[in-house]
C-alpha cells in the first residue's frame, strides 16, 4: 500500500461513506423512492448543511450522496464541462469522502451529477442522472404562494403556466423561454427541468436512465423514472422547438450538439464550441480515425 492510498483510507474513517450519515441518507432515499413513484411530484425533504454554499449544488450533492455505492463510477459536469470549478470540486468531494472511481466519459459513468446540461451521448439503462436544481417550482414566478402552487399541482390547474408562454409569444413573437422550459411529466405534473437549455428537453423524454432532481435550499426532491413520457408545453400554432445556435463546433465540427459561444480574439471575434466537453473529445477522436 503506497503513501497515497493510506491517506485516502484515513479520510474515509473521518467521514462516513459519501459524507452524509446513514440516517440522513435513509431519509433522502425515502424521499427519492416516493419521488420515483409519483413522477414529477416535488417531495419535501429536510435538506442538510453541506460543506459548501447553496447555489453550489447542495441538493444534487445530497441526492448523489444518498445514491452512491462503492463500485459507482462518477461523472460530474457543470454546463456540460467536466473541468469547471464547480464540477471539479464536487468530483473531488466524492473522491475524498467516498473514494469512488471517477470518469469524464459519459458512457462509462454509472452516476452523473449535472448542472445545466444533459450529456449529448445517449444515456443507458441503469445510469443515474442527478440534476442540481435552484428553483424546483415551475409556477414560482407566476404564483408566489406555496400553498396555492401545491393546490394547483394537486388539481392540475396549469392555465397559469400557459399564460407564461402566451406572454412570451405576445412579447417576442415566439416562445422566448430558452432555459428551464417547463415540461409535463407522465401526462400529469408540470415539472421544472432545472435550467438546462430547451435543446436538452427531448433527451428527458422516454430516457432509459433514472433522472433525479435535488434542490437544497428549497428542500425538494423530484424524479423521472426510466421510460417516462416527458412533454414540453406548447401551443398548437407555436409548437415546441429544441433550438440551438445554427453553427458547427469549431473543434470537432459537430452540428448536432449544443454549442457555447466564445469570444476568441480581442476584437470580439466569436466562435462556437460544444458545451459537452466529453462529447467534443469523442467526436474529435472519431474524426481523426476516419481520416486515418
Amino acid at each position: 500500500m503506497n503513501e497515497m492510498s493510506k491517506n485516502e483510507n484515513l479520510d474515509i474513517q473521518i467521514y462516513n461513506f459519501a459524507y452524509l450519515d446513514e440516517n440522513t441518507k435513509r431519509m433522502i432515499r425515502r424521499a427519492l423512492l416516493k419521488a420515483l413513484c409519483i413522477p414529477g411530484y416535488q417531495v419535501p425533504f429536510s435538506s442538510r448543511e453541506m460543506p459548501m454554499p447553496y447555489g453550489w449544488g447542495t441538493g444534487g450533492i445530497q441526492v448523489t450522496s444518498a445514491c452512491l455505492i462503492p463500485k459507482d463510477i462518477l461523472k460530474v459536469i457543470d454546463q456540460g464541462a467536466d473541468d469547471t470549478t464547480n464540477a471539479v470540486s464536487i468530483r473531488k468531494f466524492f473522491q475524498k469522502t467516498a473514494n469512488v472511481a471517477v470518469t469524464e466519459k459519459t458512457s462509462d459513468a454509472s452516476l452523473i451529477q449535472t448542472r445545466h446540461r444533459i450529456p449529448e451521448t445517449k444515456l443507458k439503462e441503469k445510469q443515474i442522472l442527478v440534476y442540481q436544481v435552484p428553483i424546483p417550482e415551475p409556477l414560482r414566478f407566476l404564483e408566489p404562494r406555496e400553498t396555492e402552487t401545491r393546490k394547483m399541482h394537486a388539481l392540475s390547474e396549469y392555465g397559469l403556466m400557459y399564460v407564461k408562454l402566451y406572454e412570451d409569444i405576445a412579447k417576442h413573437g415566439h416562445i422566448e423561454t430558452a432555459y428551464a422550459y417547463p415540461v409535463k411529466t407522465n401526462g400529469n405534473y408540470v415539472t421544472d427541468p432545472s435550467p438546462i437549455p430547451k435543446f436538452d428537453n427531448p433527451k428527458m423524454n422516454n430516457s432509459p436512465a433514472i433522472q433525479l432532481f435535488g434542490a437544497g435550499r428549497e428542500q425538494r426532491i423530484y424524479a423521472i423514472p426510466p421510460y417516462t413520457n416527458v412533454k414540453s408545453l406548447d401551443f398548437e400554432d407555436y409548437p415546441f422547438e429544441a433550438m440551438k445556435a445554427n453553427f458547427k463546433c469549431s473543434i470537432c465540427g459537430s452540428s448536432d450538439s449544443y454549442l457555447d459561444e466564445i469570444i476568441v480574439s480581442d476584437d470580439g471575434k466569436r466562435s462556437y464550441i460544444c458545451s459537452d466537453t466529453d462529447y467534443c473529445k469523442e467526436q474529435t477522436k472519431l474524426n481523426s480515425k476516419k481520416e486515418d
Binding site: E157, Y158, G159, Y166, F235, Y238
Partner: peptide, 9 residues
C-alpha cells in the same frame, strides 16, 4: 380559456 384547455395562441 387556457385553464379549461384552450391551446391555440
Amino acid at each position: 380559456l387556457m385553464a379549461i384547455g384552450h391551446r391555440n395562441y
